[in-house]
Design a protein around this nucleic acid. Sequence first.
DNA 1: TTGTAGGCGTTATCAA
DNA 2: TTGATAACGCCTACAA
Lengths: 359, 359
Amino acid sequence: VRPGGAALPPRPCPRGPRRTPIATIKDVAALAGLSIATVSKYINGGNVLPANRAALASAVKRLGYRRNDLARGLKTNRSLSIGVLIPRLDGVFFTTIVSHMESFAQSRGYTTIVCDYREEPRLLESKLEFLVGRHVDGIVAVPIAARQPALAALAARRFPLVLFDRLLAGGIADSVVIDNEGGSRAVAAHLLQRGHRSVGIIVGPRSIYTAGRRLAGYAAALREAGLPLPQRLVVTGDYTVAGGHRAMLSLLASRPRPTAVYATNYEMTLGAIMALNEKGVRVPADLSFVGFDSLELSAVVKPSLTVVTQPLESIAVSSAELLLRRMAGDWEGFPRTLRLASELHVGQSVALRKAKAAA
Amino acid sequence: VRPGGAALPPRPCPRGPRRTPIATIKDVAALAGLSIATVSKYINGGNVLPANRAALASAVKRLGYRRNDLARGLKTNRSLSIGVLIPRLDGVFFTTIVSHMESFAQSRGYTTIVCDYREEPRLLESKLEFLVGRHVDGIVAVPIAARQPALAALAARRFPLVLFDRLLAGGIADSVVIDNEGGSRAVAAHLLQRGHRSVGIIVGPRSIYTAGRRLAGYAAALREAGLPLPQRLVVTGDYTVAGGHRAMLSLLASRPRPTAVYATNYEMTLGAIMALNEKGVRVPADLSFVGFDSLELSAVVKPSLTVVTQPLESIAVSSAELLLRRMAGDWEGFPRTLRLASELHVGQSVALRKAKAAA
DNA sequence: TTGTAGGCGTTATCAA
DNA sequence: TTGATAACGCCTACAA
């Protein structure tokens, strides 16, 4: 029986024989004929006599000394690591952001521990436990739902925590999101201006924050323009390639067929394009199309795609920067919500239509 | 002036005020009225009297005690983390593998520190330094070239190190690769059997191990069949979407046009398909096509794609498992090279041609 | 079964 | 400026 709280990680492998021993401060001190206190000062940029400095430098080099961050962290009560908790590790959106975070964090001396919870609430909690157990100095996370007791508790304790992409209800934690509504409004405006009155929209799962906002912004823009948004033009694609593919097929089959389609994330954009190609639908001659996040595709596809793009690197860096600030004890403006702008890149996938009576 | 060896990481943020203090063994001991040694035993599954066990359990729960892995690692000389060093963090191939490694490692109690070196040799070295400085217990890495002194040195020191995807010259380190030649041979056989005699191949950069092997296997199969492989049918696509796109366009323009094209990685497959769609080339009626690693696409695209797939999860798990074995001191068979099979998934993208005289 | 004590590599406090 | 010395949280003989 293994006791000790809910879920202690399994015992790791028995350790093997030690290889080349690693030099410690003590070794350096011995070789340089100085005390470990002096060596420590030297290592951390303190003042030492030039003569000693030289001796230490050579000793460090001779021994190949490397500071032991574990020991240091033990003393300073910091692990020099931050946790990153995301819904999934496949899809390109999160991995790209994580990649940027990773390199930013490393440039600041921090290591990242990345966990994904496969969109499972239960896994989210246990991975959060794992991170806390690892004594990470801060956490960047993507909530799965608007209410998330575990995350809320962390925030309430003033544990450095920054959310991104999705928000918690009540704005109780520092967060970084993009202007999802704004992006969709821009798309709506663009399509309306180009004469489209019947536009299909491929949306994500209702439960996901971004999906709701993207649809809401789009619907609001239509409403303000006095146009209806019939349910048959709103198709859910589950944020997957297959879902986008299916959704596009269904829109193509719908009568009257919309004159344009707007896919609201990368995977669904990909799937939708595949469907168009299979069906031999010409863009924008037969159908206009607006995608999401697929700037790379946009450059490759002809005609170039009109897409909404998110500033992936900014999201990553803003989140990490805010986190580091909190970790440094600067809680100014807490809880803070940064809203980054999304951009509409106008390509050639939206045709100009003569205005005529709406369907 | 910051002294102390080549490249110490920058000083991290000054620490902020301590928040909710975290319970330690000492606290648990005090609350339970026992010694810390007993608590430690309890935590690690040792024998304690039932009565004490109960007291400890409640104390642990009350205090929300979590073991400090840093302190434990300091004592046991292990950091419970493994480093993962890969060429890039964009592309789906490496990130998928890393994702599997991450979850496997976590299931064994290990944390992973992921670094990418953006295909830059210099960055590879410095990230390796970073990992070693973090005292990771082992490293999984993808070399950038056949000779890599830093990696070789590590292997020579018997530091737990497993390479994957690409090999080092001389087989001096544990490695996990797929049977690249075999995959290409299977493609060649399939195409030949279906009557294709003039097949374009879109290859990766010469400098990358897998690119060389994939081309070699294909060329060998042709040679053994007594067929030529004219240079104009071998187009380099740099392993990128844009490159695959360009390469396919060039093959389509080539005269006589090949009857089939084989793209040798995921990104190039994507680009190539885009090019086909743009040009309105029907697959397989106008041109047969074989892709790589795009099983997900394969399901979405119609007609379904014939593709070579790599066992991404096996690569990840095999590498991590071998690494853990080495970390446990089991050096049996060192240096070992695991060669995993790739698979040819036959879809409907290769047409059956009546055999006739070669071009 | 339980407790005592020493040490892992660092940092930090004070004297010297 | 330098150097003993005491933590940091945990593990582990060894002794009780």
